[in-house]
Simulated assay, not measured.
Amino acid sequence: MSSTVDPFSELKSRQRDMWASFAPTAAFTTPVAAHLVDFAQVKPGETVLDVGTGTGVVAITAARAGASVTGLDLTPALLDVARENAQIARLATVQWFEGDAENLPFPDGQFDVVLSQFGHMFAPRPDVAVAEMRRVLKPDGRVAFATWPPEHFVGRMFAFVGKNSPPPPPGAAPPPQWGSPGTVAERLGDKFEAPFFSRGIMHFPALSLSHYREFAERSMGPMQKLMEASAEEPERLAALRSEFETLAAPYYSANMIRMEYLLTRARAR
């Protein structure tokens, strides 16, 4: 846990606000959560931290597998949904914390497993996030996470948003870099053993490309903010919407958007 001034505090404040509308999208990641928890080999009785828990889909899945689970997220609005989901699932023992992947509010060596599903990848400094995940793990603990590769649809969507938005602060790493196995192995470095990788596909139902775009504009923070920023420029807004649908078209068939993700698992050194 660090007490130094965070140079990315303004960025994180924007992220906290940006993801507040994410709950409807999070529901579609529920099958991925099961894949991640199984891939991580979570066992009954293990202590698990879910970083970037959002609405708690991974945390609750791990708790249903018998683990003792803590979920952490930057965005209070998502944690409210997580608490409600845990109550519905009758899992009152899950603990929820508002917090930052780069400054985890937990003592050294507390957890058997640290998980993250499309969460820690938005921390601007990968080296800091990795160091924090390793710090809170037990000596023989392990990390497992799901990320979006840059070459597939969601990674390309982030690139689309990035090129049409103000640049991030200097030194902030693009989130989809966490979807490249070589980059992941390099970042885990000497803190973890060589990582093991797998892949999966998330299918997102949509009646048409326009339906998917409309949903993204309401419930996917980066898209929502981009379109809001263009609301007073009708021609630019129309061009962005057209470009987005063209980007999504190759991944759309049988009323589904195909979203490929990368899974990583590594044991602490």
Rank of each mutant, 00 (worst) to 15 (best):
D73P: 10
D127A: 11
G54N: 02
M256T: 10
R187E: 12
A40K: 04
A131C: 02
Q15A: 09
R135M: 05
R64C: 03
H120M: 12
A144M: 12
S116L: 07
M223S: 13
F118T: 01
E186T: 14
F106L: 10
M259W: 06
G45S: 07
R241N: 15
G54I: 01
R199K: 09
H120A: 15
M157P: 04
A27S: 08
T4C: 08
W178Q: 01
Y252E: 05
V113S: 04
T30S: 13
P234L: 05
N103T: 10
Q87D: 12
G119I: 02
A129F: 06
F111S: 05
G171S: 11
A27E: 14
P7K: 10
T246F: 05
V51H: 04
P139V: 03
L237H: 14
P166R: 06
E232P: 01
A40T: 12
G200S: 11
R199Y: 09
D108E: 15
A34P: 09
T55W: 00
S3A: 14
A123M: 05
E84K: 14
R142G: 10
Y252W: 11
V136E: 03
P169Q: 12
P139S: 09
P44K: 00
F192T: 03
R218V: 01
G200T: 15
S68F: 05
T246A: 13
T93S: 14
G56L: 04
A63P: 06
E46S: 08
M227F: 15
A33K: 05
Q177P: 02
F160N: 11
P181Y: 01
T61A: 12
D50Y: 04
A239Q: 15
T47K: 10
V42D: 06
E245T: 14
L72H: 05
G54F: 00
L115Y: 03
P126K: 00
T183N: 09
T30E: 13
P195H: 03
H35K: 11
E193A: 12
S210V: 08
Q110R: 13
P167H: 05
F39Y: 14
V48R: 02
V58F: 01
P205C: 07
R134Y: 08
F118W: 11
F28H: 11
R199G: 15
R187S: 08
F28T: 08
R241C: 12
V128G: 00
P7M: 10
P149K: 04
